[in-house]
Amino acid sequence: MGALAGHTIHKDHIHHGWNNAFQPCLQIAPGETIEFQTVDASSGQLTRESTAADLERLDLARVNPVTGPVHIDGAEPGDALKVTVLSLRPSGWGWTGNIPGFGLLTDQFPHARLHHWNYDPGLAPAMYGPGGRVPLRPFTGTIGVAPAAPGLHSIIPPRNVGGNMDARDIAAGTELYLPIEVPGALFSVGDTHAAQGDGEVCGTAIESPIDVVLQFELVKGARLRMPRYVVPGPVTNHFDRKGYEVTTGIGPDLMQGARVAVSEMVELLASRYGYDPLDAYMLCSVCADLRISSIVDVPNWVVSYYFPRVVLE
């Protein structure tokens, strides 16, 4: 894998949701490394042969499976778990879907659509429709530890102990710090992506099984309130080479601004490049970045949406 792991957790050790009563499948000491085999975000409900009809039948209680949990010796509430992403090995297949009722523009795009990506695990661009070439940069979409609150908690919303953050820069070389709320931390990871734009606007990225090697250390008494991470270098090199098309949404509501900026980009891609609007929306989700450009000029804020021209040229 490019990084040797002291342990391997196979993909049959998955769970759905967070629960601090889940029994760990492995116990390690700080400093050790683990290779996690992950399952795609559908938990295997979708395969290379699946269609949009399968997406409509998706059991949402089984989405975003995570591999684990792992007990880290000596981890106590108030400590932080330092997780270093050593390497990721993509599988060569993934999918992007528009799931009815899910996504930033679900009211505009209510119908299911499923796109399969077959890509070079050596990280050549993946193809999308006529002329779209998306540079790949794999990362972990869901990565976190168990919350202190008892019972089963949905895996869908992110939370202060991490989880489904979909932060595309938690990639190879990144150091992630997670607040620990229960003894042993009970760490799990999954929902791996081959590529994603900041915002993941249609609700899915290139959802792809990826084997991940992570190293674990403890920071005693860190008292973190929220996750933090350190990236090892530039984060947009894979998209920067040809510049960007940028649309904006301006007004008093950031969420509405985001919706407008994305809608404007969908319209641009459809009118200039001939994409079906739903295909354009899904393509945006895997490669375009939402940014808050201005949040101080009362009463209106500016949300910008950056689409990398390298995808289309």
Results as ranks from 00 to 15, higher is better:
P90I: 09
C202P: 07
L136D: 05
A52V: 07
K242I: 00
F109P: 08
C287F: 07
L283Q: 02
I170T: 14
S304K: 13
G97M: 01
P227Y: 10
G197Y: 04
L218S: 06
P69Q: 05
F109T: 08
W18T: 11
A53M: 02
V219M: 07
F187K: 09
N19Q: 08
D289N: 15
L136V: 09
W18A: 08
A3P: 00
P147C: 06
E181W: 06
A171F: 06
G251D: 02
P209I: 09
C202M: 05
A171W: 08
A280K: 01
A222N: 07
L254S: 05
A195S: 15
L152R: 14
P209E: 03
W117I: 07
M282I: 03
D240R: 12
C202W: 03
G68T: 08
V134L: 11
A194R: 04
A205E: 03
D289I: 06
R272Q: 08
E217F: 06
T247C: 13
E264D: 11
G190S: 10
H10K: 12
I28T: 12
P158G: 09
F187P: 09
A3D: 13
G274V: 00
D40Q: 09
P138T: 10
K82Q: 15
S42P: 00
F36M: 03
E175M: 04
A261T: 05
A185N: 05
N160R: 13
G44T: 03
Q196R: 04
L224Y: 03
N160A: 12
S285P: 12
G251R: 06
M265V: 01
L269R: 02
P252L: 02
D40T: 10
P125S: 14
C287W: 09
Q196I: 10
L46Q: 11
S87Q: 09
G251M: 10
G163H: 06
T174I: 03
H153F: 08
N164P: 12
V70P: 11
D40V: 07
V266A: 00
M226Y: 14
F22Q: 13
L88H: 04
P121K: 13
G97W: 04
R48I: 05
V296W: 07
S208M: 03
D289E: 10
L136C: 05
P209S: 03
L88T: 14
H15I: 14
Y119V: 06
S271Y: 00
I14E: 07
V311M: 00
G122R: 11
E49W: 10
F109C: 06
Q256A: 10
T140V: 15
Q196V: 06
G17L: 09
H15V: 13
E32N: 11
L214M: 14
A5S: 14
S304F: 03
P110Y: 14
I72F: 04
M265Q: 13
V296Y: 10
P147Q: 09
D191C: 05
S294N: 14
D40A: 10
A167R: 04
M165Y: 02
R113T: 06
P150F: 01
V219E: 13
P183I: 00
I155Q: 13
T142Y: 03
V311K: 00
G249W: 08
F22H: 15
I292P: 01
A195L: 12
